[in-house]
Design a protein around this nucleic acid. Structure first.
Lengths: 257, 257
DNA sequence: CCCAATTTGTTCGTATGTATC
DNA sequence: AGATACATACGAACAAATTGG
């Protein structure tokens, strides 16, 4: 049952946008899941009574949103596609590109989400999962000596948090933890934070994570929550310190804000 | 300085996608903000040496992401556009469409974010802002008698939370609060929750909000946090109850799961 | 009110690329 | 290797919308 009419909307939409919306609601109404093949381009042209270019632009719109993927060749076509986490992260990142997030903004969220994640995982992880966490920790057992090692350890520590998030049964929590970590990494990269070594941050970071895994294994949700809370407070404090140092360095002498 | 070469990527991208990425990084590199006009279609065709259709598809990709908007006529063209919250919400919603979020998933997040929001706003709101909150509350002063009134009050209560979020200086927190509320509304609508009146939820909801505004005005962050925490616990409990009732109704007699 | 200029929007025909059989 | 089925890309023409005279 192809959509005979294009749905009305309040705003003036271009025809490709209308077609894209029509296809989208068509797919949802029929409950078609990932892998389902949409009608061929020629078919859609006939169904909607529009030119190839218009249909193609509509497909591009859906593709940009990560909802479909198209393949050439026989057996090819346009297929419903599950929006990937990477795509969702990129699309949401576009929104915050214009919002000028600060370190404080991101840490306000991380400070509540990360402890909640830890508490919800306490006593629910299998031994292999716990060992996987410990393995990531070994990547930064010894303190960094150079600035590059510093950055590598930073990445590894973010991977620890990402792995922890992966183990949550809550897709929303999982996404938000990873997204905030990503945004933080983007900001630190773009502002060139961690330009100078900060041993305190990573040595204490390692200690926290070891204690966290112990609490998780023991099934102590309260302790896991407290540990990650303390870790976040500490990381936030040190990050702000770094930022201050950076700002002071970049500002010319005698400049008044 | 137009991009002479198309950047390489690991994955095979179609030409419109390559062009879209090129334009995107071109805009970012030059720091062009919302309102900046991109070169005309004809100009882009010449610059990239590609057909009109290809360029148009690239523009559509950027438009679908909410990054540009195009207008016809003289003085028209393609303009850099700040991604709207609505667009970001819709795009992220697409991701979770495939993730099958539960009421519990969303409330796990709301339970930590809403109290955090309340605490961070205590003592920081102006009298007009506080009065605006109180005004929204008057919309559901008397208990609902019909199912339609029930739904209206539900919407009004969500508006209270949205307004509160609006007052946060943290764009990330603001977005997440509103997004989770939206997702919750979508789920309750699609699953037809609130089909029968539930006076307890809304009468206690009103009470909580009155006490919350008082705490905010008094600048008592701890109390504001506690109040919203309690409210969330309660709302979650009642929502789960509703869901159970609904499930029981929809299941045919004698059906075994 | 109409007309002209400008810019995006849409159509069609044709040709090319790519993967499957 | 060749035929087939499909998306991809190109180019030229035409349509629609907007602005200003």
């Amino acid at each position: 049952m192809p959509p005979a009419t294009i749905p009305e909307t309040t705003e003036r939409l271009s025809r490709p946008q209308q077609v894209a919306e029509a296809i989208k609601s068509w797919v949802m109404a029929n409950g078609w899941g990932p892998g389902h093949r949409l009608p061929s381009e020629l078919d859609l042209i006939a169904r909607f009574g529009m030119a190839k270019g218009t249909i193609r632009e509509a497909i591009r719109i859906l593709e940009a949103q990560g909802l479909v993927k198209s393949r050439t060749g026989p057996g090819g076509g346009v297929f419903v596609h599950q929006v990937s986490e990477e795509r969702a992260t990129a699309l949401l990142g576009n929104y915050f590109y214009f919002q000028h997030l600060t370190i404080d903004d991101i840490y306000q969220i991380r400070k509540v989400l990360e402890p909640e994640l830890a508490a919800s995982l306490a006593g629910r992880l299998s031994e292999p999962q716990l060992r996987a966490l410990e393995e990531v920790m070994t990547c930064y057992a010894e303190p960094a000596s150079s600035s590059e090692e510093e950055r590598e350890q930073h990445i590894a520590s973010l991977r620890f948090h990402a792995l922890l998030a992966e183990m949550s049964g809550n897709p929303l929590l999982r996404f938000l933890i990873r997204f905030t970590a990503n945004m933080l990494a983007d900001i630190t990269v773009s502002r060139r934070l961690y330009s100078q070594p900060n041993h305190e941050l990573w040595s204490t970071g390692l200690d926290y994570q070891a204690r966290l895994v112990a609490a998780l294994r023991a099934g102590d949700a309260v302790r896991a929550h407290a540990i990650l809370n303390e870790h976040m407070q500490n990381a936030h404090r040190l990050m702000r310190l770094q930022e201050t140092v950076l700002t002071q360095r970049f500002l010319p002498e005698g400049q008044i804000i």
